[in-house]
Amino acid sequence: MSKTFTRALHALALAAFVAFALFPLFWLLKVSLTPDDLMYGEGVRLWPSRVTLDHYGAVLRHTQFPLFFRNSLIVSAATGLFATAAASAAGYAFSRFRFRGKAWVVGVMLISQMFPLVIIVAPIFRLLSPLGLTNSLTGLVVVYTAFNTPFAAFLMQSFFEAIPKDLEEAAMMDGATRFQALRRVILPLTLPGLAATGGFVFTAAWSELLFSLMLNSSAAVSTFPAGLLGFVSKFSVDFGQMMAAGVLALLPVGAFFLLIQRYLVQGLTAGAVKG
């Protein structure tokens, strides 16, 4: 095989992967821009003969999606913040200390990632309901923070492992307590890791459907996924608006992902290789 041929094959294969990855998203965008009168006539054409932003206008003005969007933003940002904070502390402990019961703690966190979450919907509902945390954004934040902390902790652990122990020991010799060393030396160096972990948790919280659906039945505290699903089952033929809403749901996580993608790869690597 000649070099040129190999290179062409390589480029072709990659192009196929890019096309496969982007096609569904492209279609989502395309339908969201197709005017209603062309929806059925030109339904399966690659690009409509006319495009419109009407569906976006309708979604933003006549539906509750702006509210859902705001709710999702609050829940995801708060979850990202709290889960990253808790996970940083735990990940730091995993990477720096040997302590009695460490294997158990890690085991508990692993198990928590393995069982079907459906099984705990009812118990959680019973737990949160008397505390007034159902039909509440706070309740969702608490639940999502718990769900995402274990994986985030392993992710943070791998970021901490990449920072030499010497650095905080140097800071401790220089008159810092361990906590001060963590705050002034280690955390500034983990900023990409913190961003990646925060972004990962944000995305996960933004995407969560099941518990949002089960714990919050009132529209005032619905998140975007629950709202979109409700919209789909009510107006299942208004494809333009559904897909416009879908594109809107994609925007924040897509942006986040493109920003942190590189760091996430780093963190996952270290984590995955260590097992």
Partner: peptide, 25 residues
């Protein structure tokens, strides 16, 4: 670009593919 699908929320991937399989659109 090729990693982008991973960022798409699960429910939205489901909806998108359900629409792709819908002969109307």
């Amino acid at each position: 670009l090729v990693f982008l699908p991973w960022a798409v929320p699960g429910f939205l991937s489901g909806l998108t593919w359900a629409w792709l399989f819908n002969p109307v659109i």
